[in-house]
Amino acid sequence: MKKYLDIIVNGFVKENPTFVLMLGMCPTLATTTSAINGLSMGLATMFVLICSNLVISFLKNLTPDKVHIPVYIAVIATFVTVLQLMLKAYLPEIDASLGLFIPLIVVNCVILGRAESFASKNGPLASIFDGIGIGLGFTFGLTLLGICREFLGSGSVFGVILFPESYGALMFILPPGAFITLGFLVAIVNKIRGV
């Protein structure tokens, strides 16, 4: 059990995909206009990550080395399609607000990166825990960025109004704010990690 807990902590802290590995930057910057959008994007990615990690760890001995990347991409694309159809059916508002970035989970380098560096070398159970750890780390990163941008830009967090919207700096919700907020968050995380 200790071993699996370590895998989760590793994904969340040591190899945090947003602040340390800096992977999957496109959805990180694009979908974090509000805390709830960041959270839903993180959870959507986590779902695909766990499923694809599990399947790929089963397939690792069956795939010939030469075609392993196309096979991984096909597995990931399958789960993204499953997610896309489920969101359309049950959570249409989230589907509408994340839009193009749901199909683009396929090319999120976090998922292919974990398939290549973890799931293709470890057993199914360990791969699931790696998916949970990295997925939680990614969700945490996106939610934190979403909270900061929503707070600075419109004065609310998760839709709860903290100060009147007219005092907010709209720039933080617009594209430049995404780069700048993430830049400063990375600096703060670097300070905490003592780099």
Binding site: M22, P175, P176, F179, L182, F184, V186, I188
Partner: peptide, 21 residues
């Protein structure tokens, strides 16, 4: 020191994005 590496690169990208706006 804390801003070295990716951090300052991201802020620079933000300013460039602001210019494109």
């Amino acid at each position: 020191r804390g801003m070295r590496g990716m951090s300052v690169v991201l802020v620079t990208a933000g300013l460039l994005s602001l210019a494109f706006m």
